[in-house]
């Protein structure tokens, strides 16, 4: 009886796991294997064969690795800004407002994600461009007398990225802050801590797993974002995903594009790993 029960539950286990494994295999492993294969092949028809030149190109051509460094740097800045803005927002939702209202606030936060990213970015553009809504009002109010171009610079691009990533920072932060016992905050206050000190010694240490997972998600999303930097960033603010796009579509060099794709994956993983090392955390702890 129990043996057959065991067998049954094992069967159920595999049945449930099968779609997940299939999904992983079909959509993640196979394309990546293909890309790996392609990245290691020579692109020229005259000399087909295995080669590392695609990877070499990244390190030898400054435009490539400089673009990557820029992209990574801006992704880190975006993550930091999102974290600084997300912490008080999450604390407010998790601890300050009534429980009923916190659900409503979460929905409000989710709402922008109902529309596609493209539409959201165009929304920003309508607001910010030279003939846009903000300029219109500023002109009308007489604050400025010639319209300002607010689009196509790095600051606007980062703002767009922060806006796009906010939810992915706030959700893990809210869930981790909800588990914070209010009396810990009060106890710290009672023992003489100032507000800033309570954040530093109690709230942030408690929220560490949420901070880490939020930061990883936001960093990866920003790094891999294509639309926002492309549409809101300036002409000279090239994002690394645009390089990949260019290789695939403009130059039609799929081998080079694949190599860049792999480099993006590898280098971003190294950055996340370094970040975890720096803050002395393990990925397993963060996920739990």
């Amino acid at each position: 009886m129990s043996a057959s029960g065991m067998k049954q539950s094992r069967l159920a286990f595999w049945l449930f796991l099968a779609p997940v494994l299939g999904w992983l295999l079909l959509l993640i492993v196979l394309p990546h294997l293909d890309m790996l294969y392609m990245s290691l092949r020579s692109g020229s028809f005259s000399h087909p064969g295995w080669t590392l030149t695609n990877y070499q190109a990244f390190f030898e051509e400054p435009i490539y690795w400089l673009t990557f460094a820029r992209t990574a740097g801006y992704a880190v800045i975006t993550t930091a800004i999102t974290l600084v803005l997300g912490l008080p927002v999450a604390f407010y939702i998790a601890k300050v407002v009534r429980p009923g209202l916190s659900g409503a606030l979460m929905v409000l936060l989710l709402l922008p994600f109902w529309v596609s990213e493209l539409v959201r970015v165009y929304g920003w553009m309508i607001l910010l461009r030279e003939s846009g809504v903000i300029n219109f009002f500023l002109l009308r109010l007489g604050i400025i007398d010639t319209p300002i171009e607010m689009l196509y610079n790095d600051a606007t691009m980062i703002m767009g990225l922060v806006y796009t990533s906010m939810l992915f920072m706030v959700v893990p932060l809210v869930s981790v802050m909800e588990s914070l016992d209010d009396s810990l905050v009060e106890a710290a206050y009672d023992l003489g801590a100032s507000r800033l000190c309570i954040w530093r010694t109690i709230i942030i240490p408690h929220s560490k797993p949420g901070i880490t997972s939020g930061c990883i998600v936001v960093f990866m999303l920003s790094l891999g974002n294509y639309l926002t930097p492309n549409l809101m960033g300036g002409k000279n603010s090239l994002w690394f995903t645009e390089q990949i796009y260019n290789q695939f579509i403009a130059s039609f060099n799929w081998n080079q594009g694949s190599a860049f794709g792999f480099l993006l994956l590898a280098l971003s993983s190294v950055i996340v790993w370094a970040g975890l090392k720096l803050t002395r955390q393990k990925l397993g702890e963060v996920a739990s």
Partner: peptide, 20 residues
């Protein structure tokens, strides 16, 4: 303010800081 009062409170559920 509570952090300036010369009293201290032992909480019902103690509220010791688990991170320390």
């Amino acid at each position: 303010l509570p952090n300036e009062r010369p009293v201290n409170l032992v909480f019902q559920h103690l509220a010791l800081f688990p991170m320390m």
